[in-house]
Design a protein around this nucleic acid. Structure first.
Lengths: 163, 163
DNA sequence: CTTGTCACTATGATTATCATAGTTACTATC
DNA sequence: GATAGTAACTATGATAATCATAGTGACAAG
């Protein structure tokens, strides 16, 4: 492609977000980071993206300040990637995407129950696909939720990690 | 590129959403639709995307059931694009993107106040960047909010429409 | 009968992405 | 101490998506 138009100087907030988030690879990497995958290989394997793409996107995300590289051992040098505060604040976006997909992206009877079941740590309620806890009424934030992948999703991830 | 991996059959809900939303053009078109731009030319002009891309993405979005084509006149045939219920339900995603950008994507002093100010129709409160109205405590949904673009954003859009 | 508008489609240059293979720097095993 | 393994990448070449620009068809207005 020719260089795509840069949106980082628009005054529109959705445009500015789209510059980073309007990219499949970035979204998938963010998902994995939110699920606790911090290492390059784990992310590359689980997302199914090539190492080159993962490398490029992690660099971009580091530049944008949403992830940080940490060395977790010296010899040989090994790093992991962690969400910064700016990155963790993207939780609402990913959670909204998840909610939308749970409501619209599965065929009738394709899976039993939600693809990932979330419960509110504070009160234990199943939050369904709402942004406010149906049990206690609190707005849901990053860290408040415990996600439990369905059997189908677990199997799929295991298959990618195994093969 | 080689054909990119299809994510529409993953069991991960974020993956399924990313198939549609992990695309700058789709996000920009959705933004314009949410802001009431329904016509092809208006969308192409305001987004800055080429007509070919707009055409391709609107087709995709129609296939996915997030927009519908309506004829608003017979001779000559003219259409407009409207969000379906499935499309309107993406509001939370776009709103979360907006909130994140308002918090993180502007330099100190780059603009005065928010890029787009939202007020809750029901109670008149400025909602800031929250998902629950700070005035009355109600969760914010599509249609509940009135957006007022900043002067800078208005000027930018006028420039694109004029040139 | 020329100009204008709307909603597109066509063309060619450029570049991002994918699959595959290779690299570096170690550790662990035989 | 030679081979295999692991983690985090980089290099290469084929393919396809995107952009800029121009063009089309159907009609309305002047």
């Amino acid at each position: 492609m020719p260089r795509r138009t840069d949106l980082s100087d628009t005054f529109c907030p959705v445009g500015r977000s789209a510059e980073l988030l309007g990219d499949r690879a970035v979204l998938l990497i963010l998902r994995d980071l939110f699920f606790g995958r911090r290492r390059f290989e784990a992310i590359a394997t689980n997302t199914g993206l090539g190492p080159q793409l993962v490398s490029a996107r992690l660099k971009l995300m580091e530049e944008q300040g949403v992830v940080e590289r940490h060395a977790y051992q010296e010899r040989p040098p090994r790093h992991e990637y962690r969400l910064t505060a700016k990155g963790k604040d993207l939780f609402d976006v990913l959670y909204a995407m998840r909610n939308w997909a749970e409501r619209w992206a599965y065929e009738e009877g394709e899976i039993v129950g939600p693809a990932v079941r979330y419960t509110h740590r504070a009160c234990g309620a199943d939050v369904g696909t709402s942004t406010v806890c149906p049990g206690c009424g609190e707005p849901l934030r990053y860290g408040d939720l415990k996600g439990e992948p369905s059997a189908a999703l677990k199997a799929e991830q295991a298959a990618r990690a195994g093969a």
